[in-house]
C-alpha cells in the first residue's frame, strides 16, 4: 500500500504546483494592464495626485513579487481583498455565491450521472443498432448547441408556454429546499442535457473499448453467461474510465455554469465573474478565476487518483 500512497502524493504535489503556476498567471495578468491598475480603474482623466493616492491605497507602490506573496497568503486564508467597485471584502460576496453554484452543480450532477452511465452502458451494449444511431445524433446535437440555446428553448417551452417551472432562478436563504429545487430546475436541466450527452458518449466509448479486449472474448468463448461477463469481467475494469468521466464532467459542471447562470439570472459565482469583468473589478475577477481554476484542478486530480486506485496497472508506470 505504501507505494500507492507515494503515487497519490506525487499527483497531489503536481496538482499543487500547477495551481501555484496558475495563481502566478492570474496575478501576473493584471500587471500587464496597459499603464497600471490605477490608470485602468481611474481612467485617462485622473490627475497625478489621484493616481498616487489610489496606488498607495492598494499598495501598488511596492514591488510585484512582494504583493504576489501577500495576495497569495491572504487568498489561502480566504481573504481576497476589497472589491474596487463596492469597497466590500470580496470573500463575503463570493462565499455565498460559491455555495449557490455548488448547489446548482450538485443538483445537476445528481440527475445527470445515473442517467448518463445507464444510457451509456445501454448504447454500448446495443451499439450500431437504430437506438445507438438515434442516441448518437441526439447527443451530438446537444453537445453542439451553445448552453444558452438549450436554456432559452427550455424557458420558451417549459416556462412560458406550459408554465411548469419558473424562468428566473432567484434563490435566497429563506427558501425551503423544495422551493429551491423547484426554482433551479430549469438551469439544472439545461446542464443535465449537455452533461448527459458528453458522459454518454464517453461511457459508450470506454465500454466498447473494454468489450473488445481479449479477456472479455476469452470469457465469452469459455461459455460465461452474458450478465456475468459484464458484472465480473467488464465492470471492475470499467470503474477507472467511468470515474474519470464523472470527475471530468463535474469539472465541466462547475466551470460551464457561467453561461447558464447568466441565462437564468442565478446568483452564482459565474454571473459575478461576468459582471466584474465588464466592470473591470480586478480583485473579484482574480478571486473568481482562482476559485474556478482550483476546483477544476481538484476534480481532475480526483479523477487521476480515482483511476489509480481502481486500476492496479496504473500503479506501475513504465
Amino acid at each position: 500500500m505504501g507505494d500507492i500512497a507515494g503515487i497519490v502524493l506525487k499527483r497531489l504535489g503536481l496538482g499543487l504546483i500547477t495551481l501555484l503556476v496558475i495563481s502566478i498567471i492570474i496575478f501576473g495578468a493584471v500587471e500587464f494592464l496597459p499603464g497600471d491598475l490605477a490608470q485602468a480603474v481611474l481612467g485617462q482623466g485622473a490627475t497625478e495626485e489621484n493616481l498616487a493616492a489610489f496606488r498607495k491605497q492598494l499598495g501598488l507602490d511596492r514591488a510585484a513579487p512582494i504583493r504576489y506573496f501577500e495576495w497569495l497568503g491572504n487568498a489561502v486564508t480566504g481573504d481576497f481583498g476589497n472589491s474596487l467597485v463596492s469597497q466590500k471584502p470580496v470573500s463575503e460576496a463570493i462565499g455565498e455565491r460559491f455555495g449557490n453554484t455548488l448547489f446548482l452543480a450538485l443538483y445537476a450532477a445528481c440527475i445527470a450521472v445515473p442517467i448518463a452511465i445507464f444510457l451509456g452502458v445501454l448504447v454500448a451494449l446495443y451499439r450500431n443498432s437504430v437506438f445507438d444511431r438515434v442516441a448518437n445524433v441526439m447527443t451530438l446535437t446537444s453537445i453542439s448547441s451553445p448552453e444558452f440555446f438549450l436554456g432559452y428553448i427550455l424557458i420558451l417551452f417549459i416556462s412560458v408556454k406550459w408554465e411548469m417551472f419558473p424562468a428566473i432562478a432567484k434563490i435566497d436563504d429563506g427558501m425551503t429546499l423544495m422551493e429551491k429545487l423547484n426554482r433551479t430546475f430549469l438551469p439544472a436541466l439545461t446542464m443535465v442535457l449537455v452533461v448527459v450527452a458528453h458522459m454518454m458518449r464517453m461511457t459508450r466509448a470506454s465500454i466498447i473499448n473494454l468489450l473488445a479486449s481479449p479477456y472479455v472474448e476469452m470469457a465469452r468463448l469459455k461459455g460465461v453467461p452474458a450478465w456475468k461477463v459484464i458484472v465480473k469481467h467488464t465492470l471492475p475494469n470499467a470503474w477507472a474510465p467511468v470515474i474519470n468521466v464523472i470527475a471530468m464532467n463535474l469539472a465541466y459542471l462547475i466551470t460551464g455554469v457561467v453561461l447558464v447562470e447568466v441565462v437564468f439570472v442565478y446568483p452564482g459565482i459565474g454571473q459575478m465573474l461576468v459582471d466584474s469583468v465588464s466592470k473591470r473589478d480586478f480583485p473579484v475577477v482574480q478571486a473568481c478565476c482562482l476559485i474556478f481554476a482550483a476546483t477544476f484542478i481538484l476534480l481532475n486530480l480526483a479523477a487521476d487518483v480515482g483511476s489509480i486506485l481502481t486500476n492496479p496497472r496504473l500503479r506501475h508506470p513504465k
Binding site: 500547477t18 466551470t255 457561467v258 469583468v277 482574480q286 473568481c288 478565476c289 481554476a293 477544476f296 484542478i297
Partner: peptide, 11 residues
C-alpha cells in the same frame, strides 16, 4: 488546466 471560458474572461 485552466477552463477555457474562465481563462478567456480573465484575459
Amino acid at each position: 488546466s485552466i477552463p477555457s471560458l474562465i481563462f478567456s474572461l480573465l484575459l
